[in-house]
């Protein structure tokens, strides 16, 4: 067998796996996206052209969900990056001396998001939760954590608390990998700590910042589990993320074609965003 044939043989299992697990479902999705299809007609979709896309794009709830997800993702990504950057810099000496400390710091990321949602349903419950208990103890009253005015901020806080350690891990690694000689050379010009951070360290960390920003933005934009278990779609649909919109169209409204069309739009947005970020990260520092 030639080396070329060996290569084909070696890559065949992975190719078959990708075709089966990605290409085939994607092809089915492409058909469903242009079909009128429900659970009753899964095997006999009726082609309707771009009608589903038109329904989605004209649906105020879709745009409401997109706006919620965008606000949520921007806020959460910014908060996580800022917090993680601050922690990476302040904890750097400690983590350099005791590297094992990173393990307990990463614990929140190991909990399934759905469980995080369920956990906070308990933690924030006015009568059984620890947080309201101490509020009542100290102030005589407990605020509404999941009411219509506060649900967004509570959800964003929970998401930030869970995923900041992930950003910390990447940014700390990037911060640590800045060569000592670079810092020493810069120090000869006598910059203050802020100048060192702004002019030397942050530009060198840009690829890591962009990577973590992109991953966390996409992840929080398509958030589902913890929001769904905590507030569901929210009062009047006020906490409907784009993933919840798709889920409800699929399972609750039985409009599978519309749900798949909405997820195709989401895929296109994510793809465009990824292309932009990649181009930006390739620019010289």
């Amino acid at each position: 067998m030639t080396a070329r044939a060996d290569g084909w043989v070696m890559i065949a299992p992975l190719t078959a796996f990708l075709l089966l697990m990605l290409a085939l479902p994607f092809a089915v999705d492409c058909i469903y996206a242009i079909s009128r299809v429900s659970f009753e007609t899964l095997r006999a979709p009726r082609i309707v052209g771009l009608q589903n896309f038109a329904i989605v794009l004209r649906d105020g709830e879709f745009w409401g969900a997109m706006l919620f997800s965008l606000r949520f993702a921007l806020l959460v990504t910014a908060a996580e990056i800022l917090l993680a950057l601050a922690l990476a810099i302040f904890l750097a000496p400690l983590l350099a001396r005791f590297p094992w400390l990173m393990a307990p710091l990463l614990l929140p990321t190991m909990v399934a998001p759905a469980l995080v949602g369920l956990m906070y349903r308990l933690v924030l419950h006015e009568f059984v939760g620890a947080v309201p208990y101490y509020f009542v103890l100290l102030t005589g009253d407990s605020p509404s954590f999941l009411g219509p005015d506060s649900a967004f901020w509570t959800l964003a806080t929970i998401e930030t608390l869970q995923w900041t350690p992930f950003a910390l891990l990447i940014l700390y690694t990037a911060y640590q990998s800045i060569p000592t000689e670079v810092r020493e050379a810069a120090a000869l010009d006598g910059p203050g700590p802020w100048q060192m951070l702004r002019l030397i360290e942050l530009p060198l960390m840009r690829p890591a910042l962009l990577a973590v920003g992109f991953i966390r933005f996409i992840d929080s934009f398509r958030v589902f589990d913890n929001v769904y278990t905590l507030t569901g779609a929210g009062a009047g649909g006020s906490t409907t993320t784009i993933s919840i919109y798709i889920y409800e169209a699929f399972f609750r409204r039985n409009d599978i074609g519309v749900a798949v069309a909405a997820s195709m739009i989401l895929l296109a947005v994510a793809f465009a965003l990824l292309t932009l970020v990649l181009r930006w990260s390739e620019r010289p520092a």
Binding site: H125, E126, F127, V128, S144, G147, T231, A235
Partner: peptide, 19 residues
């Protein structure tokens, strides 16, 4: 009714009454 009633379902209501 509790301030978070807009996020209450069966279990939350039972916890409130049961308290």
């Amino acid at each position: 009714s509790p301030k978070d009633s807009l996020s209450y379902e069966y279990a939350e209501a039972n916890a409130a009454f049961g308290s």
